[in-house]
Design a protein around this nucleic acid. Structure first.
Lengths: 202, 202
DNA sequence: AACTGTGAAGTTTTTCACAGCC
DNA sequence: GGCTGTGAAAAACTTCACAGTT
């Protein structure tokens, strides 16, 4: 039986917390300790992990290194995915400078922008490439993941191009819903939705 | 009875889609049309909205302008919240340049950074202020919301200061879990968790 | 003693389906 | 005919609680 998406969504959080615990040079942890850090019940964590096999030892807990390895394998981030960034404005620039993708399974391979003034500039170690060659480059290299940092007006259009060129997962920073074909993954990052969610409780 | 948090979490998405529909100069929409755009079932949308009263008309649908007004009131974003940004690196800089907070209920009021070289610079129209005065400024002005764009190592420490100064909602961009007291809202933005969630399905 | 893995129970969330209205 | 609002049903998700292991 297939694993609930909500469980998959928590695995990256476990991974992040485990990395942290590892940095603090713990070799072992427990569902209780993880739960405390993540504010998730220990039963939840045990149940989630049990979907993928018995990773822990009764009486002892989980070997952090081993668990990280297994979760990385489950999520397929034990290899390095090439990612295309589209849009070299403030946001695309911040993304391109961010050093945190490297050791978590992702490597920015290309940075595209439509504006002729931006093309050719170097941003965060990447040469800004023209959108005109985007489809071909993505198809040729088999890039499967893209981060979309273009204005809302262009987001759907660019997303269509990306999908057409073979991209199967899009992380969309534009504050607009995008329609993608069945089977293409899409995730959204819109800080305002998070802020608005919190103001309800203030 | 209190309204499920998961419902509250969807309201900002409805609001965003409604704004879009309004821009396309539609005066009226339906749960079906909204659902199609958001990939959420129409029954879900009707049920969510019904928590707050009957906003629609049978046979007709929802008046977009009216519905926007009501949702903004529910989420308390019909007024403008001051937000403090902490961290003026690439990310804090991108946030400070972003024009999308304005008309959705938020106004960046302050930009803080600890680095003496950054303090005094102008970034996105804001003067970078020293962290030494942060607590006092936040307390004096009653700032309730902060966006955290500092390195992971400092995130917990800075969050503690913010809460101590009266901040009640934190949007944390650092890829690390933060512990805040009961009653303080926290939300996370970590692009890598979104990417990792998608690679599972590739 | 401490902890996992897991059926069973409990709770929450979503969907169904339809009466009622425009 | 098209749509909302909503009880009831169904599905999904979380927690409980404990047998079993180290």
């Amino acid at each position: 039986m297939s694993i609930p998406d909500i469980v998959i969504g928590r695995l990256p959080l476990y991974l992040r917390a485990l990395r942290r615990l590892q940095q603090e040079s713990n070799p072992v942890t427990s569902s209780h300790e993880l739960g405390r850090r993540l504010d998730i019940s220990s039963a939840q964590i045990r149940k989630d992990l049990s979907h993928f096999g018995g990773f822990g030892k009764q009486g002892t807990g989980y070997q952090i290194e081993f668990l990280i390895e297994r979760l990385e394998a489950v999520l397929q981030v034990n290899l390095e995915w090439m990612v295309a960034v589209v849009g070299a404005g403030n946001l695309g620039s911040a993304i391109s400078h961010y050093r945190g993708f490297q050791d978590r399974g992702f490597r920015i391979a290309y940075l595209f922008d439509i504006s002729p003034e931006k093309v050719g500039q170097r941003i965060g170690g990447f040469e800004v490439l023209p959108m005109s060659g985007m489809s071909e480059t993505i198809r040729r290299d088999g890039v499967k993941i893209a981060m979309l940092a273009v204005p809302a007006e262009n987001a759907q259009f660019v997303a269509d191009q990306l999908v057409e060129a073979g991209v199967q997962a899009i992380l969309n920073y534009a504050p607009i819903n995008i329609i993608v074909p069945e089977g293409v993954q899409i995730q959204y990052i819109d800080p305002v939705t998070h802020l608005q969610r919190m103001t309800y409780y203030l």
